[in-house]
């Protein structure tokens, strides 16, 4: 059963359990954090961040992220151009890393979070386990998109030889870093427990039928004393 069904809420910071008291602003007795049953306005806030990120996604990909001046010739390059340049130079593995980090991942995050929000709002019958895996993946991989920003920082500092060769950052980079930060924030404001709130019934039945209860070793049993079995 869910902790919430038993009138228990979990501190979002230190994971201590407390009994829910209706109509009261509660603070964790251990760490002092504000207690919420679910992250407040999770869906609305996540949508807001996501839409902003999606809008900035366009300039991030269209505007040049840096300009390479080499022997007086300046060539602005976008994210995709940078990847293609690496491919032409024969450095396919690195090109692949950059492609994944700066094009695939941001796109996947935008689509993925939107899908999670949609499925939670519309009560889509999708596997909760798959969705939680997707959420964790999105949460984990988000920071890797900063790769291109760091590359620009290093290149700008390193290639600074006046007229001979220099690299300048451009506006696209600013837009891109905003996209990365906003999607990371969106992953933080999204409450993964919403995924389970919706699909509660089916998952429980599925689990009771076949899967072993244990995790790695010695894991917690569900508190069987607490609810009649038919409630699962």
């Amino acid at each position: 059963m869910r902790a919430l069904d038993a009138g228990i809420i979990v501190c979002s910071e230190c994971h201590k359990l407390e009994y829910l008291r209706q109509g009261e602003v509660q603070h964790c007795t251990r760490c002092g954090a504000r207690l919420h049953a679910r992250r407040p306005d999770s869906i609305a806030r996540t949508w807001a961040l996501l839409v902003t990120a999606a809008i900035l996604y366009i300039p991030a990909n269209v505007l040049p992220i840096m300009t390479v001046n080499f022997l007086g010739k300046g060539a602005p390059s976008t994210i995709m151009a940078g990847v293609l340049e690496l491919v032409h130079a024969g450095m396919v593995p690195i090109a692949l890393v950059v492609f994944v980090a700066s094009i695939l991942v941001p796109t996947f995050k935008l689509v993925g979070i939107a899908l999670l929000l949609y499925s939670v709002q519309r009560h889509q019958p999708m596997s909760a386990r798959q969705r939680i895996l997707m959420y964790r993946f999105i949460e984990w991989i988000g920071r890797w998109s900063m790769l291109d920003i760091f590359v620009i920082a290093i290149l700008v500092a390193l290639v600074n030889f006046g007229n001979l060769a220099s690299i300048e950052p451009n506006l696209g980079a600013a837009a891109f870093s905003c996209v990365v930060i906003l999607t990371m924030l969106a992953a933080v404001t999204f409450d993964p427990r919403l995924i389970w709130d919706n699909t509660f019934g089916e998952e429980e039945i599925e689990r009771e039928e076949g899967e072993p209860v244990s995790g790695d070793n010695d894991t917690g049993r569900e508190s069987e004393a607490s609810a009649p079995p038919s409630n699962y």
Binding site: R2, I195, V213, G215, T219, G220, R221, E222
Partner: peptide, 28 residues
Amino acid sequence: LIACHECDLLMRHPRVGLEQKACCPRCG
């Protein structure tokens, strides 16, 4: 008791020995 931080499943607090870990049986 312990509740999973990610899926809100309520469980009995597991006894965990040294260098062992316990994962949520529902969401891992």
